[in-house]
Design a protein around this nucleic acid. Structure first.
Length: 784
RNA sequence: GGGCGGGUAGCUCAGUUGGUUAGAGCACUGCUUUGACAUAGCAGAGGUCGUAGGUUCGAGCCCUAUUCCGCCCACCA
């Protein structure tokens, strides 16, 4: 017997039941059912689920549940992306600085707590991973596999150690990748400074970074710039008295500043390009902590201090022409917002430049949903100029499994017996040059960890049989904003570098959730909506429906209270309809009912149901959840509740046994199919109704997807007309302030094609009319 | 500067391969406590589908141009 209202208590009951009954268990031994596997994103263990998680995890939960009902042996593991800077910051704040080993232990401890919290929130949302396959990137076993993957790439010459200018965060004291950069607008100063030309005259260059002048190795101008054309290949003396060549280069902007610029090896990315282009000397002038070096009297000063001192000195020496304010964009580290420097340093790299073409080719073999999603990756691949810096100078991360020689620079991989490799426990290695090699103490970029998830979940590299069954994954669902990181690195590492097979068949992209005002949710704006707050007011099934209604397009979408309220009302609608069906089912005996023995109205609702099954299935196959749920809502609310339920009430409460039985049969059939279609999106309510109304003992989530029944086109078109007549009569009663169940003495119907005698008598019973007169003509309904 | 997405009702959006009168929800207005549901029902009002051309018997949908918004990339000395 159904309770009066649907709510959280019912959801919690089923969540518990599902866990106890291993409802979502993947069957390793099943050789019959086809496998459908999901390479789900391991969320970063921040401690709380946000709306973006709820949206995207709902999507893949829809897919997993749908595929289970479609007869697939669904493999839905869930992992955690645990390591990285944010956790280090929080742990350091709480426990202070500790030696690396203890510090790492604290990070692990902390992360375990956060995982527990997030896992509980996922369960509250009714997500259905098979938790037996949970993985964490911080586990030694995970480390071992990451390290093995790197050793393989090292052997294949895809991973190497080199000194190269990298983006460097002075605050984190670590190299960072291009993908970790953010742009920030800052107010700066453009300084115009006198250099000395070949003829002894002044030449004014403009720069925002005068502190780098000691590293100035050339002065550049545009070849078409008449002001400077005569300088080509001449020598110019900087304001600090150093002689450098003047070079013409067409990438110089004539209009910017004075049209004359100084190249200081590592001022910005273009400086590095020019350095290589003109084989200029390399001078590194900033150290790892952001202090000056190789700059004479300014050595040891922080960049900002040095800038002031240099400007003062130039001013005193009469070299400073003027300083004008300038709004400039500065590259900052996305995590800590510190302006980054380009500094040459010894780091580990993964080859991207020579593999880019293959990465692109692999990406093209994957099905992208929506299809334009691939353009994000292609744009990125085509713009890739530098290899990927994979080393980070951090503690809570996967150690790089390498040795290097400080003396000669040689490198070597850790031995297979040393994995998982931890530098503090490393056995050591002798270098061919005679010196002792040191274990690498840097850790991996976190994308190195997460770019092998399709391998991790498939038993790589130990279980070849499992690998053959589970790799590549059927689906990779992920956010559109991490195409150029997670998708890109995974296709590269798991696909191109390690297996030669694209890591997944299909990639499904989702957008982000914005605040209701269309802006980004952020702590500073205070417009954050949290899933746990929503759960106070809305059942999980309503929140999940909101996610479905938000569509699967890779498009950002504002959160909508209207949608979620509607979702909640729809749950109430289905619930109440089910209560009516339950109540009307009293005395119902399930016996074979032939479709052709049913009346037109019954054949109509069954046909409409069939159409919805077809449409809904098609939409689920295409990951178009918003279309599926919309079709269901419209059908169930309007066709089934507003019309069909009202049409059969007189039969349910009447004495005609066959009419009553047929109505009961159809009510149950439609409800039964509907809750099956809804099960992936509203799993809790579907489960409750299946058990309470239909007496199921197994989970609906292990039952079969509804088959499409027959569609009677004639019944559908007859009912279109019929519904219109009923609507007219409802309107008449409404206009005349009559109750909808009030009796009408006589009604005249004017129709191009008359209602059949069967429908005419149904109409009399449904609209409570004593006498109906039909005439041929344009559509018209008049009450006499 | 390059790429992608989008401009449809007051708001948020849907509109399948071009095909009668362009839809939904919310919000708004009126009526109705009717044997599941007032978290409801019945109805009403609200749109020159960004703009301008073109293809077509026919365009919200296809083509061209143009404008505005959003995201990404590059540049920012």
């Amino acid at each position: 017997m159904l309770q009066e209202r649907y709510g959280r208590a019912i959801e919690e009951k089923w969540q518990k039941w599902w866990a106890e009954n291993n409802t979502y268990g993947f069957d390793e031994k099943d050789e019959v059912r086809p496998i459908y596997s999901l390479d789900t994103p391991p969320p970063f263990t921040s401690g709380d689920l946000h709306m973006g998680h709820v949206l995207s995890y709902s999507y893949f939960d829809f897919v997993a549940r749908y595929k289970r009902m479609q007869g697939f042996n669904v493999y839905y593991p869930q992992g955690w992306d645990t390591q990285g800077f944010p956790t280090e910051v929080r742990v350091e704040k709480k426990f202070g600085r500790l030696p690396p080993v203890q510090f790492r232990e604290k990070c692990v401890e902390w992360t375990r707590e956060f995982i527990a919290r997030m896992k509980a929130q996922m369960n509250e949302m009714g997500f259905s991973p098979d938790w037996r396959y949970e993985y964490r990137t911080m586990d030694p076993e995970y480390h071992r596999k990451v390290q093995l993957s790197l050793l393989k790439m090292y052997d294949d010459k895809l991973v190497y150690r080199s000194k190269y200018p990298v983006y460097w965060c002075p605050k984190c004291v670590s190299a960072i990748a291009k993908a970790e950069l953010d742009d920030e607008d800052k107010d700066g100063m453009m300084h115009h400074i006198n250099f000395t030309g070949p003829d002894g005259g002044n030449l004014v260059i403009a720069t925002t970074r005068p502190e780098l002048m000691s590293a100035c190795v050339a002065v550049l101008f545009h070849p078409d710039d008449e002001r400077y054309r005569a300088l080509d290949n001449k020598t110019i003396r900087t304001a600090l008295g150093k002689d450098v060549p003047a070079i013409a280069d067409k990438e110089v902007d004539k209009e910017f500043g004075t049209g004359l610029l100084m190249v200081c090896t590592f001022g910005d990315k273009m400086d590095v390009v020019w350095m290589h282009r003109y084989k200029l000397p390399m001078i590194d002038s900033i150290d790892q902590h952001g202090r000056m070096r190789n700059s004479g009297e300014f050595d040891g000063l922080k960049v900002e201090e040095a800038k002031k001192k240099v400007v003062e000195k130039l001013k005193a020496g009469g070299k400073l022409v003027k300083s004008v304010p300038l709004r400039q964009t500065v590259k900052v580290h996305d995590r800590c917002k510190t302006p980054v420097e380009l500094i040459p340093s010894l780091q580990w790299f993964a080859d991207i430049r020579t593999t880019a073409k293959r990465i692109k080719a692999f990406a093209e073999k994957i099905k992208w949903v929506p299809d334009f999603g691939i353009s994000y990756l292609i744009d990125w691949v085509e713009g890739a100029e530098w290899d990927w810096v994979i080393s980070r100078q951090r503690v809570f991360g996967t150690p790089l499994p390498f040795y290097y020689c400080e003396k000669c620079g040689a490198t070597a991989g850790a031995g297979p017996g040393e994995l998982p490799f931890y530098p503090e426990k490393a056995a050591g290695k002798a270098c061919p040059c005679g010196a002792k090699m040191l274990p690498e103490t840097s850790t991996c970029d976190v994308w190195v960890d997460s770019s092998i998830t399709p391998l991790i979940i498939s038993g790589w590299p130990d279980d070849e049989k499992r690998m053959a069954r589970l790799y590549p994954a059927s689906l990779r669902p992920q956010g559109v904003e991490i195409v150029r990181t997670w998708a890109f690195y995974t296709i590269y590492r798991s696909g191109v570098a390690l297996t030669g097979i694209p890591p997944f068949h299909t990639i499904l992209l989702n957008g982000n959730v914005l605040a209701p005002d269309g802006k980004k949710m952020s702590k500073s704006t205070g417009n954050i909506i949290s899933p746990s707050d929503l759960l106070q007011d809305y059942p999980a099934d309503a929140i999940r429906q909101w996610a479905a209604m938000s569509g699967a397009m890779a498009k950002d979408r504002p959160f909508s209270y209207e949608d979620i309220k509607y979702a909640k009302s729809f749950l109430a609608k289905v619930w109440n309809a089910a209560r009516l069906v339950e109540k009307s089912s009293e005395g119902h005996e399930a016996r074979g009912t032939k479709p052709e023995s049913l009346g037109t109205i019954d054949r109509w609702i069954n046909s409409r149901m069939s159409q919805v099954v077809e449409e809904y299935t098609r939409d689920m196959e295409a990951f178009e959840f918003h279309k599926a749920i919309r079709a269901m809502q419209n059908f169930f609310w309007h066709d089934f509740c507003d019309n069909y339920l009202e049409y059969v009430k007189h039969r349910i409460y009447g004495a005609d046994a066959k009419a009553k039985h047929d109505a009961q049969h159809c009510l149950r059939h439609v409800l039964h199919d509907s809750i099956r279609l809804l099960a992936p999106i509203t799993p809790h309510m579907a489960e409750e109704l299946d058990h309470e109304v239909f007496g199921a003992s197994e989970s609906i989530h292990r039952s079969a997807w509804p088959a499409k029944g027959p569609v009677d086109i004639d019944a559908i078109s007859a009912l279109e007309k019929f519904n219109r007549v009923v609507a007219e009569l409802r309107q008449y009663k409404a206009r005349n302030k009559m109750a909808q169940n009030a009796e009408l003495a006589k009604v005249r119907l004017s129709l191009p094609e008359p209602l059949s005698p069967e429908l005419e008598s149904e109409l009399k019973l449904i609209s409570k009319i004593k006498e109906v007169e039909q005439i041929k003509g344009d559509f018209g309904v008049s009450v006499l």
